[in-house]
Design a protein around this nucleic acid. Structure first.
Length: 295
DNA sequence: GTACAGGCAGTAT
DNA sequence: ATACTGCCTGTA
């Protein structure tokens, strides 16, 4: 999700060895309809990819989820259903596990533009060049390639002290420990414990990997933005039970302690339930929107 | 120059 | 168990 770019009406995204392409003709069609009074052949969103990956949108945009059941599971909440109505185009994306693991390992303690920069450099240096529509893309490097890279080479991608962590993640994937297929099968808690064994993967990064690539929809990643949202809109959830911890939070840019993460995470998962990750996605997007973030 | 950004591991208490 | 601290790097 970090490696998507827009040109004209099309979005291009790096998905492992693939360049995915989504073209939105809908606005264009409105004009055409007005001019001709006729439906255009392009009256839709079109999906393609290089190389061909038929129906990738089903996998990547999770069209196989029972979205009605998921959305209705939040019907007792005040805020989330409203956000679902407001942000109707928002989707929870499913990434390839190895790309997701590397991406979120790079994501710790930095901002999105920095993450994008790091990942683009990793792709340029270690991925394969691909020309699509006369534009140059680089696929996402394999774990084998990253594992072969020297620490100095990785550092040149701007990883800083994350270098060691990226190496550890690449090595874990190459060694097949943990095995990705078994992570997909394991319940949330067990899969998370496996991920936490890898150097550089903590609570937050693990929850992102679980939600965005391992189909654990109850995973509820909490970064500083989610923490702010929880304190702002859901303080009542943990108001009485954790007085000491609740009161002195200043809502600002304080870092989340490990202890705090566990508490917030437990309340959020108890409250939002087995599809909580979907709620998280809407709450997160909303928090960023309200803060005027441009991604 | 300093503060800050979507955490983490290592160490001290 | 929980608290404290240093850490790469680019931007404001």
């Amino acid at each position: 999700m970090f490696l998507w770019e827009k040109y004209e009406k099309s979005w291009y995204g790096i998905y492992g060895e693939y360049v995915l392409k989504l073209t939105d003709y809908r606005a264009h069609t409105l004009v055409k309809k007005n001019e001709n009074g006729d439906a255009s052949e392009n009256d839709e969103i079109k999906f393609s990819s290089f190389p061909l990956y038929p129906y990738w949108e089903k996998q990547v945009f999770r069209l196989d989820d029972d979205i009605d059941e998921i959305f209705s599971s939040f019907s007792n909440d005040v805020l989330v259903p409203e956000l679902i109505r407001n942000y109707s185009g928002l989707r929870l994306m499913r990434q390839q596990p190895h790309q997701c693991m590397v991406s979120f390992t790079c994501a710790s303690n930095t901002n999105i533009s920095m993450i994008r920069r790091m990942l683009r450099k990793l792709c340029e240096r270690f991925g394969n060049e691909m020309i699509v529509d006369d534009k140059r893309f680089f696929t996402f490097p394999s774990a084998e390639r990253l594992n072969r890279a020297s620490n100095d080479e990785l550092r040149l991608c701007g990883l800083g002290y994350r270098t060691k962590a990226v190496k550890a993640v690449a090595e874990a994937i190459v060694n097949d420990s943990p095995n990705i297929t078994s992570l997909l099968r394991l319940p949330y808690e067990d899969a998370k414990n496996e991920l936490l064994k890898i150097h550089g993967i903590g609570d937050k990064v693990a929850d992102c990997i679980l939600l965005f690539s391992l189909d654990k929809l109850e995973a509820f990643p909490i970064d500083i933005w989610m923490a702010r949202t929880l304190y702002l809109n859901y303080r009542w959830l943990f108001n009485n039970s954790n007085k000491k911890f609740d009161n002195n939070r200043k809502l600002s840019s304080e870092k989340i302690t490990a202890h705090e993460y566990r508490i917030l995470s437990r309340y959020a998962r108890d409250y939002f339930g087995k599809y909580g990750g979907y709620a998280q996605q809407y709450l997160y997007y909303n928090a960023r929107q309200r803060a005027g973030k441009k991604w």
